[in-house]
Nucleic acid binder design. Structure first.
Lengths: 223, 223
DNA sequence: AAAGATATGAAAGTATTACTATTAAATTGA
DNA sequence: TCAATTTAATAGTAATACTTTCATATCTTT
């Protein structure tokens, strides 16, 4: 039962006006998730979003200064949510190996259903992360944005799980590399399985992505 | 000595007029590589390129129907070149393990110098692959473009190296997943090392990316 | 219930992008 | 040298990514 009254707080640097503070704000976030999924990030515009929610483009700009800022917001929301799930699923588990396996599964499995506690559709958001999130940090402004904390949530999640790796094998040299490889890799593999299947080895219902990365991590960090 | 009179042939579907067929064409490709590196793909435009090479925007459109098409061309050129290096470096090598190690090194090491046999700067092209190539296939048109062969060269390289994996361990279940994870992973790690260093474990001069992936592959496919 | 503050909407405007189309001039090649 | 091809110049279009201004609606406080 996931329906706790949990609330995900987003760093105020990531919006101009908090979208959670009004109905319009929530509708902007909610509908943008649907539209980015439908149209792809490139074809999605604030003008189209305005039409879809029956609001004005200029009103949307009061919440997010650009569609890029909105994407960054969504990505941070996603990682905050994953972090919450991670902490929730690993507390009271003593075995470091078990904790790590839980984390890897969380990173690599598809989000299939949304036991919703908010207005945000996590199934669609997961798809956005898979298809669009690289666009957020592959910009000429990364360094500047990184300084402002735009990628903090993601980095914190990687740090948490890297610590689990070190708990198992304190001498392992590359924990961050391993974990970010797993996360990004799993997203790529999911995308490839749908669009460029010859780059992957996914078979219907066999859970290969989760199996591959779980096994990979275990073998790599073995002492 | 790499200065063979080797020539990289690009699938004619990937351009409107072959840029290698004229000085203007070569200048378009050559200068676009520099400009995409300097400005980033988003800020790069055919108008700016026209100004830079002292030519007209409309002339550039006779070679490539869009800047996206140009990026796809560059990516294919890159993978053709890697494929050439791969084949060249692995012929006459009998040990499958040695061949695989050569391939992994080729994928994961930085391109540092350009023993040029063409007008294309491979050091810069490698940087474009690292920073921009995900943008080529994270589009709503992937499926269509994939059918037209836009990603064929990359897929062929992955296939070649997957075959090496199977030569070592014919029972290994996920050769394509492994190889595309290594390639994409190494690119990510290189990017992270410069812009989001807490997601990686790169240390100056220690070749960690190559070491990490070489070791990873070896451990994963061990019988 | 009035006054003030704040949020939203409507409309118009700007600079730029990603092209397309037309026509003229230059270059090349048989 | 004549024709074909290539490139350049110019202009034009629809859309994008915003910004600005001002009016109106709604909420808050007294």
């Amino acid at each position: 039962m996931e329906s706790l009254s949990i609330h995900i707080t987003i760093n105020p640097e990531l919006y101009t006006k908090n979208p959670e503070s009004s109905d319009l704000g929530k509708k902007i976030v909610q509908t943008s998730i649907e539209m980015i999924n439908d149209l792809g990030f490139e074809s999605f515009t604030f003008r189209k979003l305005g039409v879809a929610i029956g609001s004005n483009e200029s009103s949307i700009y009061r919440y997010f200064e650009s569609k890029h800022a909105l994407l960054v917001y969504l990505i941070n929301w996603y990682w905050s949510w994953i972090e919450y799930k991670l902490v929730f699923a690993t507390t009271n588990i003593t075995s470091a190996k078990d904790k790590l396996n839980i984390a890897i599964t969380l990173f690599t499995q598809e989000v299939k259903e949304d036991n919703s506690f908010t207005f945000i559709n996590k199934v669609l958001l997961n798809k956005i992360i898979i298809s669009e999130s690289a666009k957020a940090y592959h910009t000429k402004d990364v360094d500047e944005e990184n300084k402002k904390g735009f990628y903090k949530t993601y980095k914190r999640v990687v740090q948490r799980v890297s610590d689990m790796v070190l708990e198992i094998n304190p001498k392992f040299e590359f924990p961050h590399m391993l974990i970010s490889t797993v996360i990004e890799g799993a997203h790529h593999q999911r995308y490839f399985s749908q669009h460029l299947p010859s780059l992957t080895d996914v078979e219907e219902g066999k859970n290969n992505i989760v199996r591959f990365y779980t096994d990979l991590v275990q073998k790599i960090i073995a002492k």
